[in-house]
Design a protein around this nucleic acid. Structure first.
Lengths: 197, 197
DNA sequence: TTGCCTATATGACGATCATCATATTATATG
DNA sequence: CATATAATATGATGATCGTCATATAGGCAA
């Protein structure tokens, strides 16, 4: 009943892991089947024993990315009082570390723009991931006592995603300025103390 | 001295026009040289009489996109009092019409995420385009009398880009809710009257 | 018309890609 | 050890792509 992971399942998980990393780094089309399998320590032929086709891989890889993202999200929001959780999440999501580490965490800054052009299944995962992120923020803002938390949550999420997207295309100095501005403004408008660096 | 446009220059402009539209719609890699030339009413061979290579095309196409974007930006911000201009810009940028028309206007929602993975020249155009957009917003916010207009401008730009990025991957109903939320929140935090639909 | 230069078209090359048929190796069972 | 089955590797196919060499057509000067 519990998940006895067969060798094949472990291989599949490894492929998805590498796909999720590579696609965040180089775009959804940035890595081919052969290169991906090589990164997973395999050759290209076995791919179709694990996935129907490339579109199927992309959809599951997006799933994998949002699992990473959810983990980080809950780690900040659920394990803390609302104010501390929100503040920590903003500082982490918009940190210079996150800007540089493009192969992990939330897929929205790197792949959000392409999501609408992805195969339907992958796009659907993005849609669900966005809604879940938004709902988690809304719950935290409700606990914090914000007025109109639903609207604010959508707005906060948009700024977080947009700020990291822009920061990743700016040069280092401009990026740091932009990230700091969004951290400041986000905390100010949520009503959090502005203790960040 | 003034620009006497030769036939060749007009052809080049047509190619860039089609490239700018197609790339916003389908991603920077979404259209090949042959398909692009066909859209411009030509065949693939003549391409290299106009551009060094495909990377060169991409860089100039990004330029073309920001020219469109600048046009719309200035149309709202420069021709109006600061409050009206900002309000109109927000309503237009985050309209349902903009969400659906993916082949025109600002390239940041559709291509911002890929910008950091583009050839250096194209990425540089993005960087400059972002800074110009931010500066225009800052000038307008200064005229409006906002405290800390530089920081606010960066934050507003991030939310605008992020909100449209997310809206384009959500389904229609969720997209409209998200766009309305960002329009509301943006006007509220800038201090604009909330007259929008 | 004749010849010249510019602008575009034809066609081909090598590389890369997703996909699949088939062979080979590893694992588990008797 | 022998045998069956699962898991991965090899190799090939057809499609698409950027790039370029070369051919053709169009406008202009004589």
């Amino acid at each position: 009943m519990s998940e006895a992971t067969t060798p094949k399942e472990r291989t599949r998980a490894r492929i998805l892991d590498e796909a999720a990393k590579a696609m965040r780094e180089k775009g959804a089309d940035g890595i081919g089947v052969a290169a991906l399998m090589k990164r997973a320590g395999l050759t290209h032929g076995g791919f179709y024993a694990h996935f129907e086709n490339r579109d199927d891989l992309v959809a599951h890889a997006v799933d994998r990315m949002f699992q990473d993202s959810d983990f980080l999200l809950k780690r900040h929001l659920a394990e803390n009082a609302a104010a501390k959780g929100l503040s920590e999440l903003i500082d982490y999501y918009l940190s210079d570390e996150t800007r540089k580490r493009t192969d992990g965490g939330c897929p929205l800054p790197s792949l959000g723009g392409e999501a609408s052009r992805m195969p339907a299944a992958a796009r659907q995962r993005f849609s669900e991931g966005i809604q879940a992120f938004r709902a988690a923020l809304a719950a935290s803002l409700t606990a914090f006592g914000s007025p109109d938390p639903e609207s604010l949550a959508a707005s906060v999420l948009a700024e977080m995603v947009g700020a990291m997207t822009l920061a990743r295309t700016l040069d280092e100095d401009a990026a740091r300025v932009a990230l700091r501005a969004s951290r400041e403004q986000l905390k100010r408008r949520i009503g959090l103390p502005a203790l960040s660096n």
